[in-house]
Amino acid sequence: MLSNVRTLWMVFLKMFKKKVTIQYPEKKAYLPPRWRGRIILSRDPDHNERCVACYLCAAACPVDCISLQATEDENGRRYPEFFRINFSRCIFCGLCEDACPTYAIQLTPDFEMGEYNRQNLVYEKEDLLIDGMGKYHGYSFYQQAGVAVGVKPKGGGEKEDPPVDVRTLLP
């Protein structure tokens, strides 16, 4: 009971404190770099799409608002044929970013996505893909992976030995 009275008093005293409200949109708030806002697809250091269409973001999405289809170029390098996010469903939870093994999908400090027409909230790959590497610089998935797919010679990636000679029987 007394604690309730104390609460009342403390809340009452808030009357004399400075307001914390920022008068958006006249004043913009500071958004930290890891703010979970509008989702983008980034590119790797070679300016290729980072997304390898592994479907993990779609699987992680709790509202199932990511849909894509994998395809590959003539070298077998996989990329999404289409990549669609329905932002009218997105809850900006960031699980897609957590799930992404290639740093391709990233959430950015931008939330100003209001639209008068819901259909405009459906973003395709062209709307999502940016020119840069986003938050994570220098990472290239295909340098770490075992597949070559035209990005490197077989065995030419980081921490890889050159391909073995299968014709030898020497120990």
Binding site: A58, C61, C65, S67, R84, R118, Q119, V122, E124
Partner: peptide, 16 residues
Amino acid sequence: HRFSGRTAMNANVSVH
């Protein structure tokens, strides 16, 4: 039960 993309796969046709 892990089927994904339910709310986006038809969204290019209509968001409804």
